[in-house]
Design a protein around this nucleic acid. Sequence first.
DNA 1: GCGTGGCCTTAACACTTCTTCACCGCATGA
DNA 2: TCATGCGGTGAAGAAGTGTTAAGGCCACGC
Lengths: 226, 226
Amino acid sequence: MPSRVLLIDDDARLAELLSDYLSQNGVQLTAANDGPRGLSALEAGAYDAVLLDVMMPGMDGLEVLRRIRTRSDLPVLMLTAKGDETDRVVGLEIGADDYVAKPFSPRELLARLRAVLRRSRPGVVAERLRVGELVIDIPAREAEVGGTRAELTGIEFDILVALARRAGRVVPREALLAEAGRGDVVVGERTVDVHISHLRSKLGDDPRSPSLIKTVRGIGYVLAKE
Amino acid sequence: MPSRVLLIDDDARLAELLSDYLSQNGVQLTAANDGPRGLSALEAGAYDAVLLDVMMPGMDGLEVLRRIRTRSDLPVLMLTAKGDETDRVVGLEIGADDYVAKPFSPRELLARLRAVLRRSRPGVVAERLRVGELVIDIPAREAEVGGTRAELTGIEFDILVALARRAGRVVPREALLAEAGRGDVVVGERTVDVHISHLRSKLGDDPRSPSLIKTVRGIGYVLAKE
DNA sequence: GCGTGGCCTTAACACTTCTTCACCGCATGA
DNA sequence: TCATGCGGTGAAGAAGTGTTAAGGCCACGC
């Protein structure tokens, strides 16, 4: 079975060129010519990896990567301008798996793509998240801690998922609201605090022991990695 | 637990430089200065990844890589000369996980190393610092001295981490503020003194015995190396 | 349409954390 | 030894967060 790869890049000529070359080598390439289209293509279809251009008008590649990482662990290979170390390092820190500096040879790209695909696990879509004692079943919208089910409301569940997807990393309040589907509505950020408070008590947080959800003053919250 | 990484490279100066930088970031580097020694070090010890120079006298890096791949899937990151595309592509095809072109910045190397470690064994990326009696768990944001947990506030923790990363070296006040994420905000430097004072008492510092955190008059503070 | 109940948001107050200030003691160099 | 300046530390004020409770909104059933 060929690997399905999504290319997000505004350069149509490159897309065609790559598509040709890769299809001869067992990779089926789909192209999206900007960030938003790329993201919705990811929502809609099943892909094994993403090729992502960093320099794009509108939503730039790093932003696209951030959004991809909020919802999946799909392997992402960045395409960066030669010598732009900052983008590369930031990209890798956000969670890119690799990068290729432009201009690149198709042969090198293929080799790196294969290296990335080889490492990634089959069975891509994670419908269940596990972070330490916490288990989240996303389609069923259920969460449990140490085997005990927690009765969460809608937004509480969404906030918990947003935290769990980035366990160990700080998630700003506004990002939590955005991922809970409140990004467009204007809502006081203190609202998040209240939901966090409820989450903590429902997740059986003992005030004496180190909390599962930690506060990062002035920014947001982190879910402890174990 | 720090990640253990084996460097196979004939350049002793590079080895020392990298070892310093990586050890501050939770990676324990062991150096082998040629291919055969590298291979036997791999036989002997447990490593989480390999940094492999391609250009070496005697057995070259690609040959070393081939032999590694006959017996293990250990993540291998190649160090190649800039622009030498052939080596890079061959290396990736043989089964290297990534490469970094020389000359590289330590920061980029670290980022790539972490990306590789993250893929291969989630959870091994070193996020724990140890300095004498002091143990710091960075993602959990917890610190303990001699087995006793210290309840630190956010900025106290950040300052402690900044000191621990450079244990044994003097860290100026402004650097401490910068690493605690206050680099942009204008804050009086005396603020640091107050936090240091709190840290000392929370870390169980006895005023009579030599302090864990030493003052360097006119400059800043040092964390005693043990 | 009307009441009911659940959920989200806001407000208010208690509490924690960070910063600044003030005062004191100690180290340093004349 | 004395003068000076730097750092240690307690305390107060400012800013941020935890938590409870009340009000508004919506969906649902009657």
